[in-house]
Design a binder for these strands. Structure first.
Lengths: 149, 149
DNA sequence: TATAATAAAGGTCAAAGATAGTCAAAGTGA
DNA sequence: TCACTTTGACTATCTTTGACCTTTATTATA
């Protein structure tokens, strides 16, 4: 039970008990616990996952940080998230969105935007390039959102 | 966190909150914040871009200045759609979304959703499969959507 | 007055610094 | 053995600085 990862996990869990969002310094933590910095990544990636209700973002460079956010868990949402571990086609996604609107998890406007964002037109791409797909999604949403208003 | 660039950014944002156009002195600013003058250029070029709705002009020589202007609302969407003909990284997208919110083209909620939808986490993918990316996007959005501000 | 020198801005870019991320290999314990 | 942990070398990203460059205004001088 006394492996460093568990100890670090407890430490972080304790820190995020009060606030639902905290900023960590990878190097400071590693230093504090006398471990390698990548150990912090290990702890985060094995214990602070989406499945367990955590979201991690970070920034490098001077003043960099690791931001940990505790995510809300709702039973409808949990079911949906489970389904979304698998690939899903547009129609399936649409059904899920309708369902979420019905259950007041998201609003109709939010659903509209999301369905544009995940339409085939937005996502089908000859090349697997993140930046390329990103601009395609935004373009698709923005072009169509104007029509709707 | 505490990197000077963020602090300077806040300072300038605050200054331009009242007037939609301000003149800055590079040297004075650098002096005030105790940083190198070129740091000011760094802040301007990374944070006060056209994508974010700012236009920067300047004059050298005695009595020189840096003029910051918020761009005209009408041209915003056109500029953005034009920009989106090219691939775009996450930070660029975020800037565009902020700008669209500022100009009332989309709401803050819509921006929040979209920025989750096009985050690196949502889009980075080992395989170029539409359905796979779709579920990833939705998952990423839904997991984070409930954190009320 | 016209021109040349100097001063007073701001611009550029590459290197150094400061973080964080990745991945594979080695270690550990049930 | 096998899964989990730990480490370190290498990579990626963002920030900060400084040396050198360009432009413009002002002052000195022929």
């Amino acid at each position: 039970m006394s492996n460093i990862s568990d100890i670090i996990e407890k430490f972080i869990l304790d820190a995020i008990k009060q606030d639902s969002e905290i900023d960590l310094s990878r190097n400071e933590l590693a230093n504090f616990f006398g471990c390698s910095p990548s150990q912090i990544n290990y702890v985060l990636s094995t214990r602070f996952t989406l499945d367990r209700g955590f979201d991690v973002t970070s920034q490098r460079g001077g003043g960099g940080y690791i931001r940990l956010v505790r995510v809300n868990e709702d039973s409808v949402l949990r079911t949906v998230l489970n389904r979304l571990k698998e690939p899903i086609d547009y129609l399936g996604a649409k059904h899920i969105l309708d369902n979420l609107v019905y259950n007041n998890v998201i609003s109709e406007e939010e659903s509209d935007i999301l369905s544009l964002a995940v339409s085939s037109k937005a996502l089908s791409s000859p090349i697997n390039n993140e930046n390329y797909i990103r601009s395609q999604i935004l373009r698709n949403v923005l072009v169509n959102i104007k029509r709707g208003k």
